[in-house]
Write a protein that binds this DNA or RNA. Structure first.
Lengths: 106, 106
DNA sequence: TATAAATACAACCATTTGGTTGTGCAAATT
DNA sequence: AATTTGCACAACCAAATGGTTGTATTTATA
């Protein structure tokens, strides 16, 4: 198994989606992200590491505090993929029916 | 760890995205999905099980063959989430600058 | 200076993931 | 009737995931 680090992986976990949502409003430090998250600072730190490796956040050291900014540009890729799939899907009609009709003939 | 079965999980894996893309064009049986996929039928079957549990596909038995149809409605949820995040993010400007200015004053 | 706060780093853990092979069975085909 | 085809089920595997605790280090603050 390969350690996949892409947008899809980034948003696959609900905790990471929560983090992204929080950061969408503006930069926060780790403590602020931990607040009301229900998981430990170390747990959050691991998710931030993943998000960083996915290029979804930028970390800025400021004294002893570390600020996280979201980088949401990559989410475009997800929307593009979804739209492409849905476009194809919209044109799929009657394919199953056609198949069923064909097998009925045999 | 909880076994998460949702759209985000469904599209997190590249093989599953490939399957969804193939199925977007219309229903296929397992053999057709396996073709050129580079992985075994059993491997594909496992992904189909996941996709089924996520509600992303519908399985139709037809003799000894099993046909898979994509159900892409749920992808709306992903797009909605992304748009919500991006909307917030679009309004985030100057928050980090403001913070940095404040700490500079202290 | 002593202490508290913010973080980093490592080890540990159970479960999940994403595959594989191997076996067996039902449905078509020859 | 024998064989092939399509699939289900189980066991196995290494690696990844999503957490935890425990310890050390650096930076502010009282």
């Amino acid at each position: 198994m390969i350690e996949r680090r892409d947008v899809y992986q980034a948003i696959a976990d609900p905790t990471r989606r929560m983090i992204i949502q929080k950061l969408s409003g503006g930069a926060l430090n780790i403590g602020q992200i931990v607040e009301d998250s229900g998981i430990t600072r170390q747990g959050i730190a691991k998710h931030l590491k993943v998000l960083n490796e996915c290029g979804m956040i930028t970390l800025t050291q400021k004294g002893r505090e570390q600020f996280c900014e979201a980088r949401l540009d990559q989410l475009d890729e997800v929307v593009d993929w979804v739209n492409q799939s849905r476009k194809l899907w919209g044109q799929r009609f009657e394919k199953l029916d056609k198949f069923l009709a064909e097998t009925k003939k045999l």
